[in-house]
Nucleic acid binder design. Structure first.
Lengths: 129, 129
DNA sequence: TATTGTTATACTCTATAACTATA
DNA sequence: TATAGTTATAGAGTATAACAATA
């Protein structure tokens, strides 16, 4: 499923990192780079180049925080939301294809078992990526 | 589960690669480097250093093939088998800890659903790593 | 003095090209 | 000419150290 997902994202000129970043920014509605890096479980130094790429594509914006001028507030742009929606749609199709061998009841059973096994740690996350 | 497994292997001075290589060599009972690389889905050039490490530890041996002197026959040594057994024992404990939230029936159900979902592709592989 | 974003750098993992020795 | 193992090397991905601006 990972391999299929990555191919699908590559067709949209994205890597999993980009999708995750856009998803977090949409859900948070803006964040400092430090907080965003923590949320993504990556080093803040590696976030710099990632945001540069997303900014070049016009998918996110950086602006100085008025309260603390050391900080950048990062926000997803309307084109970023569109691209994110397209990626999520394509990935839903991938998930459907990968789970084609299971009917609806079985998929639900699998999901519940995984949630229970992981102690509900990731119960709120999307099933893809 | 991956993260727990890798920590456990690190305590034995091993990475997943080492475990997989030893497992394949035990199951195959000897192989050329080319065939081993294919079996491990890694490039033959990257297998060289990996085997050097295992050979230094005395876990595998290389010898020239009498039939085709271009080839090396790679085999697991008795100490290699011991180390492999230790690693598998430790990893079984990790699996048990990770799946602690599921009872026996639920574990079996999860396993069956995963096998069915993946089209039995990996039905013969170990559940760890 | 501490923190935020940034740059430079090192280390790992992986893949490609080229070499040697054999066939 | 082709193949097996090897080496050198280049490219991603990731982590640490150090810097400028700001608190």
């Amino acid at each position: 499923m990972r391999s299929h997902s990555e191919s699908t994202l590559a067709a949209l000129d994205m890597r999993p990192r980009h999708l995750l970043t856009l998803t977090v920014l949409r859900d948070l509605g803006g964040s400092t780079q430090q907080a965003l890096a923590t949320r993504l479980s990556i080093d803040r130094t590696n976030l710099v180049g990632l945001l540069n790429e997303l900014e070049t594509e016009g998918l996110i914006e950086r602006r100085r925080s008025p309260e603390d001028r050391r900080r950048h507030i990062v926000e997803i742009t309307p084109p970023g939301r569109e691209t994110l929606a397209k990626a999520e749609f394509a990935l839903a199709a991938v998930e459907d294809a990968v789970l084609a061998a299971l009917d609806t009841e079985q998929r639900e059973a699998l999901y519940q078992l995984l949630v229970q096994a992981t102690g509900d740690l990731n119960a709120g996350l999307s099933s893809s990526c």
